[in-house]
Amino acid sequence: MPLWVTTVLWMGFHAWILSKWFSIEMSVWDSAVSNIILLNAALLLATVILNYAPRSGRLQFTIGLSVLLAIGCQYISQEALIRLPQALPDYLNFLDETFAVRCGVSFLVIASAGVGAIFYTQFKDQQETAAREAATQAIAREAELQKLQLQLQPHFLFNCLNSINAMILVRPNDAQTMVQQLSDFLRTTIRRADEQWINFSEELNYLELYLSIEKIRFGHRLNITIQRDETSLTWKIPTLLLQPLVENAIKFGLYGTTGNVTISIDAYVNNNLLEMRVSNPFDPDMQPSRGSGFGLSGLKRRLYLLFAQNDLIETNADNNIFVVVIKIPPRA
């Protein structure tokens, strides 16, 4: 609305000035033709900046494009105006002489539209970043709670205690080891609640602790392979990412099939991204029993909030093997 009011006022003003020298009809034509073309150029520039402008060097980009558009505008306007039957020789002369001035004015109008668009996008970006940060904090708290619930989940804990109970009777020495491992695991879990980022190697140690317990419970069926390269070890990753993923994979493997279960975990740095790959067997005929809490959609959302990228998680189900790939960009 304000755009239209401004345009009409501007066009009126333009026509009024010209009418001091030329006929009213000619002035209105001149104003209408050149300003409508100018308006389109300004809108075009604003659209380009809002949607396609590069992140850096925006100002240079805007000024450069404004110059080109201003000259182009005036050229087209002039070509159109000289063909009008109302164009008398003194008007044509006037057009020629004022070309540079008109270009200058057009440039100012187009460039201000561009600069306005830049401010607008920056404002939007800031808002988005703020919203994302707030959401990240909220989800971190949520995840913290969820993690405690997940990892200290009563089912896991009570089954562990039952295994220990059995071991005390049948293999007392192993019972001590398992108590130790379970305690270490629980202690690390509680400590992790305060941390946001850790080295991949630390997460790996934590994971191995967890896996050693699951191996005691399900060693007869569960087989785990871990492969990683040297660079991955020092990569910073968000906490509560890998272990819940592996836990899910184990659950699906153990409860979704009846045979032996191989869980593979691979981590490699590729194209400046840490790629973590977790795979487990699954039975496509199985109807998974209800939602597993920290599902993949939650993970995807979390990765988006942390990195503002939507393509960091991929899943693939082939030959009865379910694979999840998570990519972690380097920490800025």
């Binding site: 089954n159 039952n162 295994s163 109970n165 059995a166 071991m167 009777l169 049948v170 005691i216 419970r217 399900f218 060693g219 007869h220 069926r221 153990l254 009846t258």
Partner: peptide, 30 residues
């Protein structure tokens, strides 16, 4: 029971009832 240790425990506790004989241990419902 799908956990061998859990089955071992049941078996061990059942020793208190010598007239109950464990015929088989099973890993899953099938």
């Amino acid at each position: 029971d799908d956990e061998p240790l859990a089955r071992e425990l049941t078996r061990a506790y059942l020793k208190a009832f010598p007239h109950i004989e464990v015929m088989e241990e099973c890993n899953d419902g099938f």
